[in-house]
Amino acid sequence: MISLTDTELQTVMAAAAPLQPHQRSQFLRDVAAELARHPEIGAGLIGRVVREVQREHLNPSRLHHHGVSKFGW
């Protein structure tokens, strides 16, 4: 279990905002899983983790399923 301050939680939630609503739960789970790997959590670590995880979730290649885009191409 991880514990965040209000400010740290606001940082995570602000990073989730640009994602599509259906992507946010997985984003939050991924951030929590990565943060749980570290014995100490602070603003610097949170900033780095949310940037890395957000980049993964905003990557257009994640929109492709089985070699076909969401548009059927």
Rank of each mutant, 00 (worst) to 15 (best):
M1K: 13
M1R: 13
I2Y: 03
L4N: 04
L4H: 05
T5G: 02
T5L: 02
T5W: 04
D6V: 07
T7P: 04
T7Y: 08
E8I: 00
Q10N: 07
Q10K: 06
Q10I: 06
Q10A: 08
T11E: 06
T11Q: 07
T11R: 05
M13E: 09
A15G: 05
A17W: 09
P18D: 04
L19P: 02
L19I: 05
Q20E: 14
P21V: 07
P21S: 07
H22M: 10
H22P: 06
Q23Y: 09
Q23F: 12
Q23S: 09
Q23D: 11
Q26W: 15
F27S: 00
F27K: 00
L28P: 01
R29T: 13
D30V: 03
D30A: 09
V31H: 00
A33K: 07
A33H: 12
A36W: 08
A36M: 09
R37G: 07
R37E: 10
R37S: 09
H38E: 08
H38D: 04
I41W: 03
G42T: 04
G44W: 09
L45W: 04
L45S: 02
G47P: 04
R48C: 07
R48A: 11
V49M: 04
V50K: 00
R51C: 12
R51L: 15
V53F: 03
V53P: 00
E56R: 15
H57F: 15
H57A: 06
L58S: 04
L58H: 02
L58N: 01
N59V: 05
N59Q: 12
P60Y: 12
R62H: 10
R62P: 06
R62E: 08
L63H: 12
H65K: 11
V68M: 13
K70C: 12
F71P: 02
G72M: 05
G72D: 03
G72Q: 02
